[in-house]
Simulated scan of single mutants.
Amino acid sequence: MASKHYFYVLHCKDNTFYAGYTTDPTRRLNEHNEGIGAKYTRLAKRRPLTMIHQEDFETRSEATKAEAAFKKLTRKQKESYLKRQRDVI
């Protein structure tokens, strides 16, 4: 069975967003909250983090492209994107 690839967005305690890639969103969220995830989320002021968005893709390439595109958006554009995604579900 092929694994899924995920682009995800976390909401940090300091009201910032963190976007990333993983094959296991639950494990990755736990790593971030334990302070062993990305450098950005290791700071105590950013934890705890909440998973607010995830999209699954067939390939790592698709997921990392979605992550890169999200990271290029302004804060306002990120908020609009996340709102549109929630409205679709």
Rank of each mutant, 00 (worst) to 15 (best):
D56W: 06
R28H: 12
R42L: 06
G37T: 05
D14S: 10
L49H: 11
V88H: 08
K71P: 11
R27H: 06
K39H: 10
R28A: 03
K76C: 01
G35K: 13
D24E: 09
K76S: 10
R60V: 00
G20Y: 10
A69P: 06
K13C: 07
Y8G: 05
R42E: 05
T50C: 01
E67Q: 13
V88W: 05
K83G: 03
L43Q: 10
K45L: 10
K65V: 10
A63V: 04
L29A: 01
Y40L: 11
F57I: 06
Y18A: 02
T26G: 04
K72V: 06
F57W: 13
T23W: 00
R47D: 01
P48V: 02
S3R: 12
V9M: 02
E31F: 06
F17W: 08
Q77L: 05
H53D: 08
A66C: 12
D56Y: 11
Q54N: 11
L10T: 09
H32F: 03
A2T: 13
R75F: 15
D14K: 13
K76M: 03
T16I: 04
R42C: 09
D87I: 00
R27M: 02
K13I: 06
E62M: 05
E55V: 02
V88Q: 14
R42G: 07
K76F: 08
V88P: 00
N15R: 15
A69S: 13
A44R: 15
T50R: 15
A2I: 07
S61I: 14
L29E: 01
G37P: 02
A44H: 14
T16Y: 02
A69Y: 08
L29V: 12
